[in-house]
Design a protein around this nucleic acid. Structure first.
Lengths: 248, 248
DNA sequence: TCGCGGAGTTCCATATTATGGAACCTTGGT
DNA sequence: ACCAAGGTTCCATAATATGGAACTCCGCGA
């Protein structure tokens, strides 16, 4: 690739990015280092910059893979599919739980619902499709946060109800818990009386591209039912992820 | 986004890239210029660098869209989906025409069928999935050629039947015609008695990534029926392309 | 428990590289 | 033919990226 004048840094960064994106598999730091022939410090700095912007991400081994921005782009190119593919899952979950079921993706720093199956009860059947909710006080949002698919905006966290978690440290603790058990819960944090449970859906590159949720009134979603639904959601989301091509 | 030390150029470039990728629509230079607040010259230089590396591309108006590297990544993440997404279209076409319908992609310089709906007649119901046919004597192949998605191999064009077009100039003339009317036809050029009609399917970056075809025996696919099917295919392929995220 | 080695990050003086204002093209409109 | 808007190229300047070395972190073996 010819290097024109005044773009060395960008050229180098772009080269690294392209290499990671084109390689089918995660690229360890060392591989990128030797193959690019750049000095360690430079490589480290450039990769970190790309990571900051969501163009790259590190998997648990520290190897680099395409980041959330690219995953979102990829899933949007087929996001009509996502709805079609997920529909049977939504319906099955709806049948088993009787509650409102949603599929959501990230869009512009908030959670956007893109498909829904209505509750079979009268209470809780409103249409959420197209609705956008904040990250920190919804089960869906917390799931995206927990998996590093989204980042909290700067500034204070909006208090929607008396139970909204507005302390970042408390929230962090909860995100760790979500990663551990596989599903997220929001209990009257977005709206009084509303409880939701959510689990992550992964796309072809293993990145979290969407999330499934079940929501209903606190009178029906008692703790043991939440646990049961959490398990169901986790399982369904895992199967859907596999159908979408997510690696094991 | 916080700017750490020693990455100004990369940060700015990454910001531009993210903006273009996240925006659903092509971003004109001026928009990027004003929204990023960077000087004209800098913006121009950074965008050109990204373009050089295939991360961005300019459409015919000079507006920026995600480039070939990203498009390739997206289609790789979702090519399993292509079949799933296209299935309903294949079925609808099958119902309306009663003939064999195929979805094909390019693979190693030939056309490969990846999905099929069988004819409702007895004649013409064999399974083509996995079958590879040459570019110059199939309706599918000619469609790929016409849109510049494939190139003819060097050397003489194989004569499969007495009607196979083996002269490159004749073929070129036909490709022009295909671009004009939107669909391609092969009349007993691959196999005696077999006629096929095909139209192009475009993916997220506007490139031709697949094609739809209808094929059947010459006794049923008389000229006026070919015209009718051509129109149908063109319409269905256009809709499918939009679902796959192709620009208008 | 300690120390070793590899992997990655941070530091900081240096000069290479990006910067941006202005001039300069190019294209489409009237 | 002329003008305006939209982009690109130029070039002196200094701000920025650079990369060698020091440093931190972690896992492993003794």
């Amino acid at each position: 690739m010819k290097t024109s004048s005044g773009t060395q840094a960008v050229d180098r960064a772009a080269q690294l990015l392209v290499r990671v994106v084109e390689a089918g598999e995660p690229q360890p730091f060392t591989t990128l280092l030797t193959e690019s022939g750049l000095p360690k410090s430079t490589t480290s700095r450039l990769l970190s910059a790309l990571e900051r912007h969501g163009l790259l991400r590190r998997d648990h081994n520290g190897a680099f893979r395409p980041g959330p921005v690219l995953a979102r782009y990829a899933s949007r190119s087929g996001s009509a599919d996502l709805v079609a593919t997920a529909q049977p899952y939504l319906e099955r979950i709806g049948e088993k739980t009787g509650e409102t079921v949603n599929l959501a993706v990230l869009s512009g720093g908030a959670v956007e619902q893109i498909a829904q199956v209505d509750s079979s009860y009268l209470l809780g059947a409103m249409n959420w499709v197209g609705l956008r909710v904040p990250l920190h006080c919804s089960a869906l949002g917390k799931v995206f946060l927990a998996h590093g698919a989204a980042e909290l905006p700067r500034g204070p966290l909006e208090r929607r109800t008396p139970r909204t978690v507005t302390d970042r440290r408390d929230l962090d603790r909860e995100l760790t818990e979500i990663r551990r058990r596989g599903y997220g819960v929001a209990r009257e944090e977005l709206e009084p009386g509303l409880i939701a449970v959510a689990a992550a859906v992964r796309g072809g590159d293993g990145a979290v591209i969407a999330a499934l949720s079940v929501s209903g009134p606190s009178v029906r979603l008692v703790p043991e039912r939440v646990t049961e639904i959490g398990g169901l959601l986790t399982a369904e989301a895992a199967t859907l992820s596999q159908v979408l091509g997510a690696p094991r």
